[in-house]
């Protein structure tokens, strides 16, 4: 029993270390994407997540005793050998085993590009959210959005029925016990001033993250 366990662990961690590492990386990324509060951290998690998948695909392409999938001089279609025989020839089965499988590499080039595109778009979204709400923290944003949705939910005067809408509004205002005019203006004023206040210190942080992204490119 103990022996079996050791063999299993040995197999898992020594012979398939890549598969273990990719799963761990993937889980780190997934956890960051779901649980982190900061949007930039979520995006970092997203990058780790995608990189883990790339690692997995590249691991598929590993072949023992094989070289990179570029023809050696003796198989080069434009090499001396090819000229001597009058044109490139298909490789034999033994020769095929000496080259790595090119397909996973091609697939991952695509996945990398898609990852870069998604990351760029998501960063642009972060900036737009920051411009609009002054925060990239999920809980703060949710609070602000709730406030905004609640204020937009108040019945406005609409074209079909001015006469009837007025008493409705006033009855609602009475129920909640506040003056409807004061309620609509106050939170907005508060929000704008609050946004201005919070903007200054956070700005540095986003500038830093911009720098990082610029460097990584």
């Amino acid at each position: 029993m103990f022996e079996d366990g050791l063999i299993f662990l040995n197999e898992l961690f020594l012979e398939r270390l890549n598969y273990v590492i990719y799963v761990v990386l993937l889980l780190i990324g997934l956890h960051a994407m779901i649980a982190k509060n900061n949007f930039i951290k979520k995006l970092i998690g997203m990058s780790i997540f995608q990189t883990a998948i790339i690692l997995f695909y590249v691991s598929i392409g590993v072949k023992e005793g094989a070289t990179i999938p570029i023809y050696l001089p003796e198989h080069d279609p434009h090499g001396e050998q090819a000229y001597a025989t009058g044109g490139p020839e298909a490789l034999t089965v033994e020769q095929v085993t000496s080259y790595a499988n090119p397909l996973p590499h091609v697939l991952m080039l695509t996945a990398i590009v898609v990852g870069v595109a998604t990351l760029g778009l998501a960063l642009a979204l972060c900036q737009k959210i920051y411009q609009g709400y002054g925060t990239v923290e999920e809980d703060e944003l949710m609070a602000k959005l709730e406030k905004e949705d609640a204020s937009s939910r108040k019945p406005k005067t609409h074209p079909a029925g001015k006469s009837s809408s007025k008493p409705e509004v006033s009855s609602r205002a009475k129920r909640s016990g506040t003056n409807s005019v004061g309620k609509t203006t106050a939170p907005q004023a508060k929000k704008s001033s609050g946004a201005r206040k919070t903007k200054a210190p956070v700005k540095k942080a986003t500038r830093k993250s911009d720098q990082k992204k610029g460097d990584s490119k």
Partner: peptide
Amino acid sequence: ASSSPVSSHFIAKTGVDTEVPNMVTA
């Protein structure tokens, strides 16, 4: 994955089909 007809074809015949030495590019 390494022995499938598809990847064998890529390795064996890229030179014949396209004359490009770099299989990944092809």
